[in-house]
Write a protein that binds this DNA or RNA. Structure first.
Length: 274
DNA sequence: CTGTTCTCCTGTGGGC
DNA sequence: TGCCCACAGGAGAACA
């Protein structure tokens, strides 16, 4: 479910309630996430202040005194902040609560349990899950020169390439399709044939689509909700994703759908060229 | 090494 | 209404 804009929307929603406050209690109702939740987590986190909540790729990083809590939402994860006046009934998939000493409670919900909650004592960026990640798409080191340099060494379809977190992080199936449409590039194009002008357009497109999606509070196709339970509004701005058979917003030709690397891939055969 | 496919899990929507 | 199948926003692991 969540790609970079949805994770960033969640971060912005929860941080004001939690940053600077200490954890008083951690309740793990189901430890069976992508990796089992460390049984010592409640003891480790108790009484620790959360100094900041950062995002790296699609991970949220809660910086504490002795280490960092890494949280990934997987496909169906959600975060909410409950206040002390709300009823504490826990639903079927409410797997974890982190209670803070100001009365707020961070609740992690994840029906498919593809998400992860991991404690690390080492600096977060040195953790094996983070240490091989590529640049953040919205930061300066992600540019056309970088993308071209990586692209010329590969023989992969461009959509697979930009969804590879070792190349650039945060671009999932929705925004990969959207960015390629904006850049006028066919999703099957082989990376090694990428021209400089296309690399420039693609970097611009990735940054533009992610930026607009963050501003809209993310994309809600079905599940995604921000920390207050509201949907994201970028779904209505999608140009190709989930629009198979509907007219291209630029040329009117029906949007096509095919399976690429086991994922749905949407494109306009007129506006996007190999 | 590169590139592709499989896998984890539950919920939902479409076809019959 | 019910049953069955295909598929869903991620990404590590296993495979060729």
């Amino acid at each position: 479910m969540p790609e970079l804009p949805e994770v960033e929307t969640s971060r912005r929603g929860i941080a004001p309630f939690l940053v600077g406050h200490s954890i008083s209690e951690v309740i793990v109702r189901d430890h069976r996430l992508r990796w089992p939740v460390n049984p010592d987590l409640p003891a480790i986190l108790a009484q620790q202040p959360v100094h900041q909540i950062r995002r790296r790729a699609k991970y949220l990083l809660f910086d504490c005194n002795t280490g960092t809590l890494l949280l990934h939402l997987g496909m169906s994860g959600r975060l909410r902040v409950l206040d002390s006046h709300q009823p504490l009934y826990a639903d079927k998939h409410d797997h974890l609560d982190i209670v803070f000493d100001n009365g707020y409670r961070l609740r992690y919900t994840d029906p498919r349990r593809f998400g992860a909650v991991i404690w690390t004592y080492e600096p977060a960026e040195q953790h094996p899950l983070l240490s091989h990640l590529g640049p953040e798409p919205l930061e300066a080191d992600f540019d056309a020169d970088y993308l071209l340099e990586k692209a010329t060494k590969r023989q992969v379809a461009i959509k697979t390439f930009i969804m590879n977190a070792e190349i650039v992080v945060g671009v999932g199936n929705i925004y990969a399709s959207e960015a390629l449409f904006m850049a006028g590039i066919h999703p099957k194009m082989i990376t090694a044939t990428l021209k400089r002008i296309q690399a420039l357009k693609l970097v611009d497109a990735i940054q533009a689509v992610l930026g607009k999606a963050i501003a809209a509070g993310g994309t809600t196709l079905r599940d995604f909700r921000d920390s207050e339970g509201n949907p994201g509004y970028f779904a209505q701005e999608l140009k190709v994703y989930n629009r198979a058979g509907q007219g291209c917003r630029q040329c009117g030709h029906p949007i096509e759908l095919f399976r690429q690397a086991n994922r749905a891939s949407y494109f306009c055969p007129v506006c996007q060229r190999l």
